[in-house]
């Protein structure tokens, strides 16, 4: 087993970049990910979330992010994110490692 690779995770973040920023910059279509680790899902005051996300009662950590990024619709059915998920576990690990560092 290899350790998660933050640099690879940064490259993988391109899949998210059409809608999300890690630092709160830009006026993008998805919620900012700044501070996402440890945050309650659907809780940013200035973003309008789907009812499903608001009702989800999920707090984002490595485990929940992994579940969500595996198959977003399976984990939170009816959420609005137009993303299929990442099949490869090591890619998810890399991406979550990057998110953990970059969104602080």
């Amino acid at each position: 087993m290899r350790g998660a690779d933050v640099e690879k995770g940064k490259a993988l973040f391109e899949q998210c970049a059409a809608c999300h920023s890690v630092d709160g910059s830009g006026d993008l279509d998805g919620p900012s990910l700044k501070g996402v680790v440890g945050r309650k899902a659907g809780s940013l005051e200035d973003y309008r979330y789907s009812a499903a996300m608001k009702r989800s009662d999920v707090t984002w950590d490595a485990t929940t992010l992994d579940k969500y990024l595996t198959d977003p619709q399976a984990f939170i059915p009816g959420n609005r994110m137009a993303f299929a998920g990442i099949v490869d576990k090591s890619e998810r690990d890399d991406l979550i490692a990057y998110l953990t560092v970059a969104t602080k």
Binding site: A18, D29, R80, F83, A84
Partner: peptide, 28 residues
């Protein structure tokens, strides 16, 4: 997912079957 030479980000197509007559929710 793709970043074009101007720095615009496109998401990956999700094969949703709602292209023509619709806007793309995935920015794909």
């Amino acid at each position: 997912a793709y970043t074009n030479p101007d720095g615009s980000h496109l998401g990956a197509c999700v094969y949703c079957g709602h292209c023509e007559r619709f806007g793309c929710e995935a920015n794909a």
